[in-house]
């Protein structure tokens, strides 16, 4: 065995080595890549990202589509915005469960012992989940087109809707990241987030008009982020007054992202 020369280590004196800004990006991408590979190799996430959204589109279209009437538009067109938002919202659970699994497996400890950017593990996870969301949305749009969904506005508005959906997915990913890191256990993360997501998604304008809901529920439904995003996406694909709705959705999205990214990063630093 030949002796291996040890790499020259920077003499840092009493200061610390700085992580170069370029590393913040490259480390996040390296982690995102590993998460995407993982997503593609785990059968459950593949099913959650492909079969399930397709089934939802078809089910709502053909099972409930006949029973639910919404004034002014065809139910498919009304529905699609709701299904998009539902899918990215529930999809964000993946972020929390994934991080919890990484904590359980000790991988987070390994990452924390490497001279890498501190933000990379969380950013990489969120980037991977955003890519996944983009893929799922594209798939649902195709299936939606096949069963009669039409965009009533232009390409620009539709692109805006997709962008908003992805950003909203990122915002919810940060909520889930916080839950995942706090529980540190995949099952617990799932158990903690599912009811929360359900309250956001089902008590919203995703599938029915909130006008039919009883008083207090309607007040809640009208003032929560999922409804805001559904309304904005709906306006972007169906037309009508748009700017105010999009602004409300963006305020929620950005607000959630800032608060929960801050909480998650703080939680990650203390992660044990």
């Amino acid at each position: 065995m030949t002796a291996i020369a040890l790499p020259a280590l920077p003499d840092v004196g009493e200061g610390d080595v700085r992580i170069p800004p370029s590393a913040v990006v490259s480390d996040a991408l390296a982690v995102a890549k590993r998460n995407l590979i993982g997503l593609m190799r785990v059968p459950t996430t593949v099913v959650f990202s492909t079969v399930q959204p397709v089934i939802f589109v078809l089910m709502f279209r053909y099972v409930f589509g006949g029973a639910i009437r919404v004034p002014g538009v065809s139910y498919v067109d009304f529905l699609m915005a709701g299904i998009f938002v539902q899918t990215v919202t529930f999809g964000s659970m993946n972020t929390g469960v994934g991080l919890a699994m990484d904590m359980q497996s000790g991988l987070i400890e390994r990452f924390r012992s490497l001279p890498m950017a501190r933000s990379a593990v969380l950013a990489g996870r969120t980037i991977a989940d955003a890519v996944r969301n983009l893929f799922v949305i594209a798939l649902m749009v195709l299936v939606g087109f096949a069963v009669g969904f039409r965009v009533h506005t232009g390409v620009l508005e539709f692109g805006g809707a997709v962008l908003l959906l992805v950003l909203f997915g990122v915002a919810f990913s940060w909520i889930m990241a916080y839950i995942g890191l706090s529980t540190g256990n995949a099952e617990a993360a799932q158990a903690a987030s599912f009811p929360l997501m359900a309250v956001f998604v089902f008590a919203s304008s995703a599938f029915v008009s909130t006008a039919t809901m009883p008083g207090p529920l309607r007040v809640y439904a009208n003032h929560q982020p999922v409804t805001a995003t559904v309304n904005a996406v709906r306006a972007l694909v169906l037309g009508g007054p748009t700017a105010g709705k999009v602004l409300t959705a963006l305020v929620w999205t950005v607000g959630i992202t800032i608060v929960f990214a801050f909480l998650s990063v703080r939680r990650y630093r203390r992660a044990v």
Binding site: V17, S105, L107, R110, S113
Partner: peptide
């Protein structure tokens, strides 16, 4: 000096941390 330390150490923890 955590980053400087991290650049000079290798760790294999009590539980194998592989993806």
């Amino acid at each position: 000096q955590p980053n400087a330390v991290r650049a000079s150490i290798g760790l294999a923890g009590q539980y194998a941390a592989v993806d």
